[in-house]
Amino acid sequence: MSNENGNGGSDARSFEIKVGLAEMMKGGVIMDVTTPDQAKVAEDAGAVAVMALERVPSDIRRDGGVARMCSIEVIEGIQKQCSIPVMAKVRIGHFMEAKILEQLGVDFIDESEVLTPADEAHHVDKTGFRSPFVCGARDLGEALRRIGEGAAMIRTKGEAGSGNIVEAVRHLRQIMGDIRALTVLPSEEIPARAKELCAPVNLVRYVAENGKLPVPNFAAGGIATPADAALCRGLGAEAIFVGSGIFKATDPEKRARAVVQACTHWDDPEQLLGSCRGLGEAMAGIEMETLSESERLSNRGW
């Protein structure tokens, strides 16, 4: 597998450079945007990156049909507008959409369950790309499988487009709990635990020894308010993604600034209270019981 980036980097060096960009996003907010104007709102509010999309997840959910990679013109328009990194999504397993986004110079590729999967058995082999990848996960095994395939950032899946934080909380608690449980295992029990997790044993050993994932661990899926953002940070997420939550609210500018503020000051109730004032209405939310198993985006991927 060649990973040469024209500057003589080895595979390992190349992986560090990918993880490096994820490190730079820590403590920040990545916002879904569908137009250059929205990208400007996000950047002016202090977003660390934007996710270029044709439709936000709540609209994808409403419209149904097959959701694919964003059109090139939409991404290019947003790239021209922004000085911050631009991310875009590919369908799970669609390595050709990923090749196209890499050629476009997209800063981060999200292999995302929000789009309709292209491959029900296999995710993209992410090691051969110069672009870093972020992937969703519901538990530690899923996170480590994606890292084993080359993902440079993990985010919880949550339930995208739901405006309901409950699934992101479930996934964060699961991943953080799985990590804590590993740190107290005796060394000889690591391989059997790796077998249970269906995860590479070297990565399981890394987590056991370091008490954290080998790549940054962010939260996504259902974050709609500054308090939701702070909750995810308080549960151990190092940064957050907000999808429909900003531009489906009544006052996106204010809400974007407030979520950024809450993500930085999640541990300071005075700042948090300040971030919650005068926001207007949040997006409408969906009760999980009303979603059938086939309507749950988090069930996509393995």
Binding site: N5, G8, R13, G105, D107
Partner: peptide
Amino acid sequence: VRNAYGTQVDSFSA
């Protein structure tokens, strides 16, 4: 000059 070397695909070590 910000982002003077390009996007993330142009990031490197030396």
